[in-house]
């Protein structure tokens, strides 16, 4: 399997920059398996990243790749998708990138239901800058900027996306890789805004400070604390406390933005043509003798 994925990698860019035990490589592997499963053409697939550990993934991938400014990946991706709707546009982002500095772009991209697939690497921390808390760092956890424990509540990013208008929302972990792969594939297939939240481990900057030991132990933690959405119906709110609900959380059919836009263009062209400068009506041309 690994060999089949190698064609998607810029192999001369390895070794990658991620720490031992980091889950980002697992998420990346799932993304590539999903791309392979769907047979996406490399030349017609654009992968856009923001800033942060997860977003560095784009540099390792042999597609049209764009590494943007912090938080703005979705806005860049919106421009690409609008300019050329026939391209597959995938956005790789992190919890800080997507929900703090890029939070506004996130909700508006979801609201527009533009056909972008967001793979959100949620490692609960700003890893690249050394472990500051993000909007997805759980309460009472330690970070370099929360040495006494965090006091801010977290976003439920899946609920946020659903409420904003996303038409496909799923969550998985780096332990549940088959599910993660199929959710990413489902998100790419969905004609509209898709969010796949991937719970991933940052042993260096989150685990170490929060008594979660190494990457392997954090994977086991994911195994033990994840509950498939279908099982939640039989569980009480008390039993669900602190659990990660995984699976396909939301799907609906809503017209996609670029599809609707093309209809608007067709209508505008039919009704009024390309248009020219509106000249002064009647007597606009003045003869002048020189």
């Amino acid at each position: 399997m690994m060999q089949e994925l190698e064609k998607y990698l810029r192999r001369d860019r390895f070794p990658h920059m991620w720490c031992p035990g980091c889950g980002n490589g697992i998420v990346l592997g799932c993304l590539l398996r999903a791309i392979k499963k769907l047979g996406l053409e490399q030349d017609k697939t654009i992968i856009v990243g923001g800033i942060g550990c997860s977003s560095r993934a784009v540099g390792y991938l042999d597609f049209n790749t764009l590494h943007t400014t912090h938080g703005r990946a979705l806005a860049f991706a919106t421009g690409i998708k609008l300019a050329r709707p026939e391209l597959n546009v995938i956005v790789v982002t992190g919890d800080g990138d997507a929900t703090a500095i890029g939070g506004n772009h996130f909700i508006h991209a979801a609201r527009r239901n533009i056909d972008l697939t967001v793979v959100l690497f949620n490692n609960n921390i700003y890893g690249m800058t050394g472990g500051q808390y993000s909007p997805l760092t759980p309460a009472n956890k330690k970070a370099t900027t929360a040495p006494h424990g965090t006091i801010e509540p977290v976003f439920d990013v899946a609920e946020l996306a659903r409420a904003a208008g996303a038409t496909f929302v799923g969550r998985s972990t780096t332990y549940h890789t088959n599910l993660l792969t199929s959710l990413i594939a489902g998100g790419i297939e969905n004609k509209g805004f898709s969010l796949v939240e991937a719970i991933t481990a940052c042993p260096t900057n989150f685990g170490r400070r929060n008594k979660m030991k190494g990457g392997a132990e954090m994977l086991l933690w994911q195994r033990d604390n994840a509950v498939h959405v279908q099982k939640t119906k039989q569980m009480s709110p008390g039993e669900l406390e602190g659990k990660i609900v995984i699976g396909l959380l939301h799907k609906k059919e809503t017209p996609e933005y670029t599809f609707v836009y093309d209809q608007i263009i067709a209508r505008a062209r039919e009704e009024s043509g390309p248009g020219t400068l509106t000249p002064l009506k009647g007597g606009e041309s003045r003869g002048r003798t020189e």
């Binding site: 400014t69 703005r72 860049f76 919106t78 609008l82 300019a83 391209l87 772009h105």
Partner: peptide
Amino acid sequence: IQMEDEIASLAAVIGASLAG
């Protein structure tokens, strides 16, 4: 497209330009 702010506006412009 009317974006959610000017940061996003220029980002979208750059994205569209990259797409030709």
